[in-house]
Amino acid sequence: MHGLMNRAVQCFVRDTYGVEMWKALAYSADVPMAGFEAMFVYDDAMTDRMLDGATRLLNRPQESILEDIGTYIVSHPNVESLRRLLRFGGETFLEFLLSVDDLPRRARLAVPDLGLPAMEIIEGDYGAFELICRGDRPGFGHVMVGLLRTMADDYGALVVLDYEGRNGLEETISIQILQNEFTEGRPFELATGPFS
């Protein structure tokens, strides 16, 4: 698993539960206490141990931890860059959602070995969508629920999201857009980040 993903888990635990909790988790899961290097690729077993350890230590279902990680990576000030990169996907939440198909390709442009699961948005009627995630590791769908819910807030859209379940390696999320532009949302300027 890519260091960026492992680090997302690490930073989520550290920023949400404190550095002591991270140390306890790193110790019990036998992962680097000093943290993961964002640009290295680690053995998948490390990620599994870390997530299992978090489930045990935080005494919470893994699904809800994964969902919170999805929220964390696009909302915490420490990881602001990802939210900005995602906002390049479209001007409105609807546009963004329709660009999610392209997300793995976009990610590969920046980090060739990131290894996101394949994603497909299926458009239904009356603002209803389904997102199908197909990867070799289930669980990503839960992360996407948290991520999409938070991005909807970011765009100011009113949506209802549900994790519909897993069939083999395929996870399905249902998305109902009630109002594409419900509130102003957070502003997105092209000219911040490296340009300002």
């Binding site: 479209g90 001007e91 442009l109 920046a110």
Partner: peptide, 25 residues
């Protein structure tokens, strides 16, 4: 300038995305 200032077929916004992503990396 905003995304909507560029034609949907224009690659400018993609280029900005790439510059920003690469800078972060």
């Amino acid at each position: 300038l905003h995304s909507a200032d560029f034609a949907p077929t224009d690659l400018t916004v993609e280029m900005l995305y790439l510059i920003e992503a690469k800078s972060a990396i």
